[in-house]
Write a protein that binds this DNA or RNA. Structure first.
Lengths: 303, 303
DNA sequence: GCACCTCGTGAAAGTAAGTTTCATCCGTGG
DNA sequence: CCACGGATGAAACTTACTTTCACGAGGTGC
């Protein structure tokens, strides 16, 4: 039977549309009408049912099926999902976003959301890229072996410090965080060889944190600094320096992205430490999760 | 009150998978089996027929249909093309990374860093994609006009709550955060019409937070919930629901990505509020920045 | 402890979508 | 004027999708 020129089934993922328009002239009139609809708006075609599309092309379902076969598909459903896939792929409008910059005055919420998310995601990715695994390894090692872990941070970095403390505590490491400088100083004074102190400061210029870290170091503790600026003062009192890569510089942005970058670093260290002793960490996590269980309500679902 | 919180069916093209994983816990067991298959490999699911998928999930076609409806689709074909579209859009991560999953046991630091950063960045991006600007607008409006702002959160979400409080405070809004449930409850009891309460809970099942939010609502305050799961109990006591889109589900990952997603949402709200009154917010930020200036050291650089 | 709900579930009936078959139409060349 | 062959759509057919319904588990109130 006239198995009319079955064009090599383009099994490659892309190029279906191109493929179709390429062999458009070789199609029968009725099939061409279908093809034109498909090429004109693949996404729309994907949404239609075969009868619907046939009607739109002023033809019958049979012709649509024939068209599917002509372009190398098994049947209509297959064409449909391929079209949906391609339509989705080509819709990628990388509208110019304000990279690392301020939010334009007239921006609406949607723009604000897009800009912030973009910058936040960037900060996280770029931080990960420039993080030195070797340094991380040393820090993880130190934390894993430390007798005591002190974590310092002020303001926004204080939240990160606090978060880190809580995480380490949850896997059974003896970690402390002090919101108050005086308490932190006394704690630092009691550190010694085999202990570790981590100072977090976005700018790297927070005198309180630097001071405490210095104290800790003078007592023989290993010191770690987490900052955005690799040459900032805090690095002078640190044995190991980890840096974030948040671009924001203006106070106006309120160091938003930097927090996320700091947290990402904290997460990496945490997972690294936990991975050193899987069994123990897992056990500790299970126990702690269980502990808060009674403070969770069972899922009384909504209608 | 269930009617108050509507599950904004992510009408946009993107975020279906994320949307589904968010709803996962609120689905019935059989539907969850379907959901897991779909989330695990959307492209594959798109290729399957409904009977096929039902068999794979060890359930009936009826359940698959119910699942479609649960996630806001009209029927199976619609789900199918949406899945195909999303699968196509998703850029395959360079090296096979464990998306939303655990870190492989033998991983070295570099792998851990890459995986965490990838998941963190994704959570931020996907959260932004599915955030409903309209709801944000309402919340921003409410916060901007509120007499008093109470923010509740426990555990990891507590840090986020605290961060939010600090941010709002910095631009001159009267905001509070209470680490202690009892204090929070008394504060909530003193709220009234014109005030606003924000409850943050990743799982949406933290009874303490729900309880306090409920109290606030009963006093006439506008209530806002920030959670990863759009049908969790907390949404029942909230006038406005904002959702994050962190995929992690295992407690093992310690809800790491979710924090970042929550912070991104907080940042958006913060900037939104600040943008409402640029002049005043800027002034406040300048003044507060100046206040901590003397706690910064000048750049005595390293040798 | 019983009656009664409600909810999740799959079997089966029902409907719609997709596919095949086949008769018709129409132009072409004998 | 009559085959002939390809294009086409109506209709039969098959498969996929959707709805309905009854059963059973787990809870709730009497």
């Amino acid at each position: 039977m006239a198995k009319s020129a079955k064009i090599s089934a383009s099994h490659e993922t892309g190029g279906l549309i191109v493929h179709i328009s390429g062999l458009l002239p070789s199609l029968s009139p009725a099939e061409q009408r279908v093809a034109r609809l498909v090429v004109a708006d693949p996404a729309d075609a994907a949404r239609r049912t075969i009868t619907d599309l046939a009607t739109a092309a002023e033809t019958s379902e049979a012709t649509v099926i024939r068209f599917c076969r002509s372009v190398g598909m098994d049947g209509y459903p297959q064409l449909r999902i391929r079209l949906a896939a391609e339509a989705a792929r080509r819709v990628e409008p990388p509208d110019a976003r304000v990279v690392g910059g301020d939010i334009p005055p007239g921006a609406d919420l949607a723009q604000i959301i897009a800009t912030i998310a973009f910058n936040d995601a960037r900060a996280v990715e770029e931080t990960a890229e420039q993080l030195d695994p070797a340094v991380c390894e040393q820090v993880v090692e130190a934390i894993g072996n430390a007798g005591r872990i002190d974590i310092y941070g002020a303001g926004a970095s204080g939240f990160v410090a606090s978060d880190f403390q809580q995480k380490l505590h949850r896997i059974g490491r003896t970690a402390f965080y002090f919101p108050d400088v005086h308490t932190a100083l006394t704690s630092a004074a009691l550190l010694g060889r085999g202990d570790i102190a981590v100072g977090i400061s976005h700018t790297g210029t927070t005198s309180d944190v630097i001071e405490v870290l210095e104290q800790a170091r003078s007592r023989g503790a290993v010191t770690v600094a987490l900052t955005n600026f690799p040459r900032s003062p805090i690095t002078e009192v640190a044995d190991h320096v980890l840096t974030t890569a948040a671009r924001e510089t203006t106070y106006r942005s309120g160091a938003m992205a930097s927090r996320l970058a700091q947290l990402t670093v904290v997460d990496c260290l945490f997972v690294g430490v936990a991975a050193r002793n899987r069994a123990r960490a897992r056990k500790a996590l299970e126990v702690t999760a269980e502990a808060v269980q009674q403070h969770r309500v069972t899922n009384r679902r909504k209608a």
